[in-house]
Design a protein around this nucleic acid. Sequence first.
DNA 1: CACCAGACTTGGCCGCACTTTA
DNA 2: TAAAGTGCGGCCAAGTCTGGTG
Length: 690
Amino acid sequence: MSGGHGHGDSQVNSGPKGSDTHKHKDKHKDKDHRHKDHKKDKEREKFKHSNSEHKEHSEKKHRDKEKLKHSDGSSDKHREKHKEKDREKRREEKVCCVASYSDIKPKKKTKDKKVTEGKKGKKEEEEKWKWWEEERYTDGSKWRFLEHKGPVFAPPYEPLPDKVKFYYDGKPMKLSAPAEEVATFFAKMLDHEYTTKEIFRKNFFKDWRKEMTSEEKSKITDLNKCNFSEINEYFKAQSEARKQMSKEEKQKIKEENERLLQEYGFCVMDNHKERIGNFRIEPPGLFRGRGDHPKMGMLKRRIRPEDIIINCSKDSKHPKPPPGTKWKEVRHDNKVTWLASWTENIQGSIKYIMLNPSSRIKGEKDWQKYETARRLKKCVDRIRAQYREDWKSKEMKIRQRAVALYFIDKLALRAGNEKEEGETADTVGCCSLRVEHVKLYPKMDDQEYVVEFDFLGKDSIRYYNKIPVEKRVFKNLQLFLENKQPEDDLFDRLNTSILNKHLQELMDGLTAKVFRTYNASITLQQQLKELTSDDSIPAKILSYNRANRAVAILCNHQRAPPKTFEKSMQNLQSKIDEKQNQLSAARKQLKAAKADHKASHDDKSKKAVEVKRKAVQRIEEQLMKLQVQATDREENKQIALGTSKLNYLDPRISVAWCKKWGIPIEKIYNKTQREKFAWAIDMAEKDYEF
DNA sequence: CACCAGACTTGGCCGCACTTTA
DNA sequence: TAAAGTGCGGCCAAGTCTGGTG
């Protein structure tokens, strides 16, 4: 966004027709602006008016007035409130427009209004566009105008220097460029454990041979006779050299990256410059799935312009393919959000280039997601009563559905779509649970009807849990397990499509994953209420993290303990010890000073007491901070908070909490997160209820 | 209803830049 | 000033869910 120059007011969220209304006026304004820079402020005044007018009138022609289902009463109120606030603000403050894309080429009708603010802006603070205060498309279209420069391709392969050799059966062998490139992929991975795995090696070797010349193919027949170590060393040396680069060299690289970002990292969608999420195409390499993946080691091929489908609006300046190449296709589909796509060769799935989470299109969807979860909150009691009733159903199908839903609700399990066998790692979710994944214990310790879950979920993360369930559920499970083999489905009459269809009937927009969102968010809210007390800021933040942690545990967001965990924990502990020593020393001094004062009663000794008292206080605070840090870290050893924070917790809960307790939002959300949740930060007040 | 392509969200890991510490 | 520690963002895989088709 550092482009510095905003676009004309007419650009703000104007559709083709919308611009018409103000065409005349805007044109004048532009001229004025160009020629009379010193009248900036006046111009801005004009801009404000035309902008808000514009909003009022033209916008609604393009975006249906009807509120989408996600805006329930309370958020409408927020909306209104903020709209009003914003208007006021605009009246009082400078306003600067958002879109600023030097190459923008909007509709002819609006053409004359663009590129007018080059001079304005720069140092002015850019007002962020508040898309959440605007109407949304209700006709299923995602945008009216879309322009971008296409993806950035992976750098071409650079052949190895001649001195770096590959050896086959002990003898050096020069490889053809394609074969050499694939060999380097393997060589780079030599230190990883998976290059020793049979499947990995088999897949790799098979795909590697496809890249070889027939001569190479006939020669190289056994991977075990291949020696890549020189190549491996070479790349290690390279990365070492990169680290040793001078400041200037590093700076240069940084600048080049920044240039690329500025050129390719943004697009214009509906007159706003928006950040693209992933504008670089994935480079070729060896596929490494997660867990026990049958396709690990396969060659992920290089993506060429001929593989890419470009999506942009007809009236935009289309991205140019690299010289001498062509796109696979250029299409203009405004029912989707992606800018480019291609088919990946491992799974045959489609990959996309899409916008950053801070963009309007992602933000709206995110907001909508939480609104759906809030609607679930309103009817969850009914739904729970319903599935409990269904445990008694005469129909097996309904019973299974009811028990599965109970797990999804209570344990926040994922839906569990079926997957093609042999194509991916063997992982399951609720509906795809197999007999072997659950164990029933009528009695365990002092609890009755305990179910033990043990399975690999998404990303092959293990889910292990023992929970007591209601007797009815237990009896049902026994029934489902009857006469089945370990590899049979637990819910043999159920799949995600049946389940979701049922959920859809219970509530509009309800699917299995809404329960995860709902339960995560409601847990956070509840935990925050329970844990936060009027304490120091670090203590409150610890409470926040604990609430967050409760959610992460519910959602089973685990991580491998950081490699340096033990050590850094020790370091922290020794710091604490040291601080403790400091503290007792300081206390002694304080005591001595007090005694001194008692004896002498003079001013000087009185001052000394005060100084010492302050010192003790300061050290106490430091110590407390360290202890809190240690607790937090210890508790967080195997828990990953990021995913829930980013995907499951209604950000307005956190924002409200910050406001309520006077915590700066920066303590909870870093910069990126603040960008993603700008809508929530702007609209949630301290009394927000999920 | 099964099957599949397509679109979009969710997910953990890891390298790297940046900061802190010795 | 170098080594160690840390947080972030990129990477890219793996889910969910929808809608079309036969």
